[in-house]
Design a protein around this nucleic acid. Structure first.
Length: 920
DNA sequence: GACCTGCTGCGGAATG
């Protein structure tokens, strides 16, 4: 059995340690014996030292050269904390420590070249920069012996995690050494997945060290009685309930500010903390927590993880968190020691809040936490391929393939898919292929360039290449030379004008100047009065898949006798309705929408809502909307029960319908926008040419927000009658929850080009277009009428199909071709081409009308002559008359917005129609 | 109304 080096034992004494904690003891042997180790324990158990001490010990026992240890952690603030903590031990053993992140002063960064650190603390992005770009310092990584990944649960399952997993393989390849991998994680469900992810292609033996989370918690769930002023009630409750210091978690930045506004009336010991408050502002609030100034801090997820904020007495959650793991993290911020009992409270506003709160509590008690799934994003692979090429300048394709596929995420990537990706990158000029060698393409530094001011709207600053996190445009709030916070640009354009007062960070600020070129706003402190709280647009927080299942169990268990839950159930019992369950759907209608309430997986609900939205758009209008939640779904269509229509559709068609509806979702569009830059695609994305990108965007959208398989299974249950569907008139607690969700709307802003694309090479009626596009005829028709106008970019024209007597639409420039094709022969060929007609042509602005006397024969003989006789380029309206038969005027169709070029054909069409009506 | 995370290296010129 290996033992800790003597000098470290001495240092432990110097630090007055009574001994090692359980996790530190358990991790000792596997780490000292060189095994890859995953350490799982709750916060506050001393995980950092559990990894660090045995590593330092091995460093002393073996001859090591810097950089020997790489310590990776997801947050800048943690880097700062950890560097100081590690330095205490390292400095006494004569090892250097250095930190690297975007906010480390240049001077400190430069130091690492002169005095190479034995231990380097950085982020995944920091490692990315070093491997891709730090030509000189990179050489030191050849000495790497240990890599410690802290808070690995924060990275796994995200693109940052995938990025890191490839970076570790790149590091292994570059150093030509199978370094020891140590992961530190909070309590997680699937440790095997996390360890295979971290250990990747390493051939070392491995071990998982797990400490059972014995943390006890005391949780109070309260429902506020609804009165006219919820905010006031909540504030009053919080003031009374808070114990110095308390963290009050909310689920949005807006809410932190709103609650603080009310709390101000009672106390000045409350502060606000969220991601749109500047670094300085947040630090001040954190200081107030540590030095005892704050009675409470109202915060978002920013304080859920990260740095030590002192001894927190109590945790209040304003409305339930979205998952068990988030609940445990929040609760874990109090009683920050091994024996401490965490004390928490969930404040509920609605009936469904109560259900969620109890479900989360019971899941946490059972130790059930959400599982993570590993994604395989091709945009990350693409960035890493480019990173490898930057690193080596020129490299064999087969070697790049080997490195990428040695990571756990891409272990199944086929050579064909890899080649396809490389070819796409080469087509977009990010990569140059030269035989079997790859080098950087000429577009790379145009896309990621070094200019501070962007050259093109699509170009990015080079520094952004290293990070896979993307942000909305924001305006920076500045007072003198201080940063105050940030507001979404969209919100600024829509709602903010100079002179306005806004509320951020719990303070009021008057807007003095908005600088759109520097994207900043000058503000000055304002006292008194009211301030508008900005709304930040986020991703939408999805609720854990465990919650609806647990609510169902809860309602059948003894806990259903808890007063607040009993009250909810009474609302069902008294109406003779079955209790909420996944086997029952209650259908309600109000004047605007049909609501289906049940207990359902959120992704399934979202998928169904999208199908409903698609159907509603086809039947009704583009203004249709739908909603979804774990409590069901709804659609803005009440004439028919659209769910019944879905049940009639067969699986194959349904699958197609789902894909079509997802392609029309804003979720797809934003995923596409997010990833396209990684592939070097900056212009218009088109079918065929960009299929790889489109397919990947669709794949990522589906796996993140939808579930096709589970939805088909669900609909099968509906078909088989295994889910009871009940109509109900009135309003139930669960449907109330559905109605509180933000509506989803279709993204069809390019409907014009969709129609144009569909019309290419043919002529179609409104109902044909409506069927093939899944958009209502009403919407199609109004679009077509816009498109035929002279200023339209996609100009079209209509004519009459003489055989069927329907109106058909085609592309203006294609009309000539259609006239000469045999498909519409009868529509453009007169029965008698010697008959005389009068065409009355009105100019575009209706100021003049001309009459044109013609015979169809003349048009056929000399079309240019007819054109010459038309006095305007653009014609507002055409109508036909017959000098001998006045009845013709009545049956003559009207044609609008025709230009001189196609007018003769339209005349032919009119004649063919009139003669057809008269003679056959 | 809907959370969070991160973001050039290196060498040389100019300066005190």
């Amino acid at each position: 059995m290996a033992t800790l080096n003597r000098r470290l034992v001495d240092l432990m004494k110097e630090k007055n340690w009574k001994g090692m904690t359980e996790v530190q003891q358990k991790a000792l042997n596997p780490i000292l014996s060189g095994k890859n180790t995953l350490i799982i324990a709750p916060t506050g158990f001393g995980k950092t030292e559990a990894a660090l001490l045995p590593v330092l010990s091995s460093m002393l026992d073996n001859d090591v050269k810097p950089v020997a240890v790489l310590y990776i952690t997801p947050l800048k603030a943690l880097i700062n904390d950890l560097t100081l903590r590690i330095e205490w031990w390292a400095s006494k053993l004569n090892y250097y420590v250095n930190r690297k992140h975007g906010e480390v002063p240049q001077k400190e960064k430069n130091l690492r070249l002169k005095r190479v650190p034995h231990i380097l603390v950085t982020t995944p992005e920091g490692l990315e920069i070093d491997l891709d770009w730090a030509t000189k310092f990179r050489e030191n990584y050849k000495n790497i012996r240990w890599v410690i990944v802290d808070e690995i649960h924060e990275l796994i399952g995200s693109k940052r995690g995938v990025q890191l997993s490839i970076l570790l393989e790149r590091l292994k390849d570059f150093s030509n050494y199978d370094f020891q991998r140590i992961g530190l994680s909070a309590t997680i469900q699937d440790e095997d997945l996390v360890s295979s992810f971290l250990f990747g292609s390493s051939n070392r033996e491995s071990e998982i060290v797990r400490i059972k989370d014995k943390k006890v918690f005391e949780l109070n769930i309260v429902k506020l009685n609804s009165s006219s002023d919820v905010w006031k009630d909540a504030a009053k409750y919080i003031v009374n309930s808070a114990e110095k210091p308390t963290l009050i978690f909310t689920n949005s930045r807006f809410l932190t500010e709103r609650l603080h506004e009310e709390l101000e009336e009672y106390s000045d010991e409350f502060f606000v903390h969220h991601s749109s408050i500047s670094r300085e502002g947040k630090s001040l609030v954190e200081d107030n927590l540590r030095n005892g100034k704050a009675k409470g801090v109202i915060c978002t997820k920013t304080l859920e993880l990260g740095i030590d904020i002192g001894d927190i007495k109590k945790i209040i959650m304003f409305r339930p968190p979205s998952s068990v793991s988030s609940f445990l993290q929040r609760l874990g911020r109090s009683g920050h020691n091994i024996l401490g009992i965490a004390k928490g409270e969930i404040i509920c506003l609605y009936d469904f809040d109560v259900l969620e709160a109890y479900a989360i509590r019971s899941l946490a008690k059972k130790g059930k936490v959400e599982k993570t799934s590993i994604c395989r994003p091709l945009d990350v692979a693409s960035r890493e391929i480019l990173g490898i090429i930057l690193q080596y300048g020129e490299i064999e394709k087969s070697k790049v393939f080997k490195i990428i596929t040695s990571s756990y995420s891409f272990r199944d990537l086929s050579e064909e898919s890899f080649d396809e990706l490389i070819n796409y990158l080469s087509k977009n000029n990010l990569v140059t292929i030269n035989g079997d060698k790859l080098s950087i393409g000429k577009f790379f530094f145009k896309l990621w360039n070094f200019n501070k001011n962007r050259n093109y709207s699509w170009s990015r600053n080079f520094s952004e290449f290293f990070s896979l996190i993307n942000n909305n445009d924001t305006f920076l709030l500045r007072w003198k030379d201080k940063n105050i916070g940030e507001i979404d640009a969209i919100y600024v354009y829509k709602h903010i004008r100079s002179g306005d007062t806004i509320r951020i960070g719990g303070k009021l600020w008057k807007i003095s100047k908005i600088n759109t070129n520097t994207m900043s706003i000058d503000v000055i402190p304002s006292d008194g009065g009211e301030g508008e709280i900005p709304v930040w647009r986020g991703d939408g927080i999805s609720k854990s898949y465990l919650i609806p299942k647990e609510i169902e169990k809860l309602l059948k268990s003894r806990e259903s006798s808890i007063a607040d839950i009993k009250k909810i159930l009474e609302k069902y019992k008294s109406r003779n309705l079955p209790l909420p369950s996944s086997n029952v759907i209650t259908v309600e209608k109000n004047e605007k929408e049909t609501i289906y309430s049940t207990l359902i997986n959120e992704k399934v609900a979202n998928t169904i809502a999208h199908i409903l939205l698609y159907l509603a758009t086809a039947k009704d209008s583009l203004n249709s909307y739908a909603r979804y939640s774990i409590y069901g779904f709804s659609v803005s269509y009440t004439e028919k029960d659209l769910l019944k229509e879905i049940v009639k559709i067969n699986d194959k068609k349904l699958k197609k319908l789902i894909i079509k509806s997802i392609l029309r979702s804003p979720l797809f569009i934003s995923t596409l926008k997010e990833i396209q830059v990684s592939f070097g695609k900056v212009g218009k994305v088109s079918k065929g040419e960009d299929n790889l990108l489109l397919k990947e965007a669709l794949r990522q959208t589906i796996s993140k927000y939808f579930s096709i398989k589970k939805t088909l299974e669900y609909i099968k249950l509906l078909k088989e009658g295994k889910i009871q569907v009940i109509n109900y008139e009135g309003s139930l607690p669960l449907s109330e929850a559905v109605l509180m969700q933000a509506p989803i709307k279709p993204w069809i802003n390019n409907i014009t080009s969709i129609i144009y694309e569909t019309l290419k090479g043919g002529a179609y009626t409104v109902s044909e277009l409506s069927d093939s596009l899944g958009i209502s005829s009403k919407s199609i028709e109004s679009k077509l009428k816009q498109m035929r106008k002279p200023d339209s970019k996609y100009r079209i024209v209509s004519f009459i199909d003489v055989d069927s007597r329907e109106t058909r639409w085609c592309i203006l420039d294609e009309l000539e071709e259609i006239v000469h094709s045999c498909d519409f022969y009868t529509s453009f060929n007169a029965i008698n081409d010697n008959e005389t007609f009068i065409a009355s042509l009105r100019s575009l602005n209706s100021s003049t009308t001309t009459e044109l006397i013609f015979k169809p024969k003349e048009i056929l003989n000399n079309i240019e002559e007819i054109r010459r006789r038309i006095p305007f380029e653009e014609i507002g309206e055409i109508r036909i008359n017959d000098p001998v038969d006045p009845l013709v005027y009545n049956i003559s169709p009207r044609f609008y917005y025709i230009n001189k070029k196609v007018a003769p054909y339209i005349l032919l069409n009119a004649v063919a129609y009139i003669q057809n009506m008269k003679y056959s």
